[in-house]
Design a binder for these strands. Structure first.
Lengths: 194, 194
DNA sequence: TGAATCATGTAACTGGTTACATGATTGT
DNA sequence: ACAATCATGTAACCAGTTACATGATTCA
């Protein structure tokens, strides 16, 4: 179960559930979104099973917080997950399913508009990833060098995001061009399509 | 809920649950995997809510099958889903989470091996997508022209898969090169990393 | 004093997986 | 006769979402 392992990974630095949520929303959410309610639930279970321990801490800012940190058992479990083979085959993309069936609309300009919206989302992601990269550079002077080990691996996932989003934008352009090309052809030699 | 809508989309051609599962495994599974048990459950609900209707058909090969087809209400629901804006923000990739935390292993060659396995999976996907493309070409002489409307949209999603998998392979090569580069540097001027 | 936000949670629900049950048909 | 596979399902479970409850703290 990935969320459990992600929490273990993040809790090498002791943190509260609230802090963890903030971190998810700043970076991890792009490959593993999580809701606060679920984070709290899983933290509880991980403590019950001995993977985590917690203590209440009063803080200058805001009410008391429950700070979790990883135990020896937890670290073992984390390592065992990391030495698993890469886990594929669970990816779901609603928006691709939408494209797949969009001929039902019998209106190619609907597809065009849809792809333009996809394009702008992908572009925005690239900007966001660049911003995150800058933030991390500011926090850690070694980042993204291999010597700052954690930084290096975090950087790798960001690069994957950039590669994929760039490819996705290229796909949008290719698709929009194909649509326009074929519409031109149609105007010259019209054909039944319905 | 995407699975419901995907089933509606597929059932423009009347089919049984078993047939649908076969189709999922041949193509859709790459952006929306589904188990038989869940397909049957959702088909039942879609019939109860008037989106689908079914009739038993005896077949020459094998036992009776329950063939579902879409109703007017179902088609309306399908169209309303297709005219929604693209739905983002639900994507989950366990293997990227694994990379993100892999520094915990303190063993860069583990990362290397992991990325090599990713690479071979991505390569395999490209081959698979090409195979599917060929199959579809054989089934429909118009494919992937815009005139064969459904074919065109199906082709678009395949192209997205190819773009993304190609980009992912490039990421693997870039990452492996970075690791090797940095290991060379280390051998010349060794540094503490733990 | 009252709104915003910090912080932790619970309950009900929906979506998806795994394991199992059942029985017909086909091929050896 | 037996195994494989065709075909439909149920039950128990696990993961994730949405809506709501609670109360402290901060700031205008």
């Amino acid at each position: 179960m990935s969320l459990d392992h992600i929490l273990l990974g993040l809790l090498r630095e002791p943190q509260s559930g609230y802090d963890l949520k903030a971190f998810f929303d700043r970076s991890l959410q792009y490959f593993w979104p999580a809701e606060l309610s679920q984070i709290y639930r899983n933290l509880k279970r991980l403590e019950r099973t001995g993977m985590l321990q917690s203590k209440s801490k009063t803080s200058k800012i805001g009410p008391d917080r429950k700070v979790y940190s990883i135990t020896k058992t937890g670290r073992q479990e984390l390592k065992s997950w990391l030495s698993d083979r890469p886990q594929f085959g669970d990816e779901r993309f609603s928006y691709l399913a939408q494209v797949f069936f969009m001929d039902e609309c019998h209106d190619i300009s609907a597809t065009e508009e849809f792809i333009r919206e996809m394009r702008s989302e992908f572009k925005e992601r690239i900007t966001t990833y660049r911003k995150i990269d800058k933030e991390w550079r500011n926090c850690n002077s070694h980042y993204p060098a291999l010597e700052s080990e954690s930084g290096f691996h975090m950087h790798l996932t960001l690069r994957m995001g950039m590669h994929r989003m760039t490819a996705s934008v290229k796909w949008c352009d290719e698709s929009l061009a194909a649509i326009q090309e074929r519409q031109k052809e149609k105007m010259i030699s019209p054909n039944k399509t319905g």
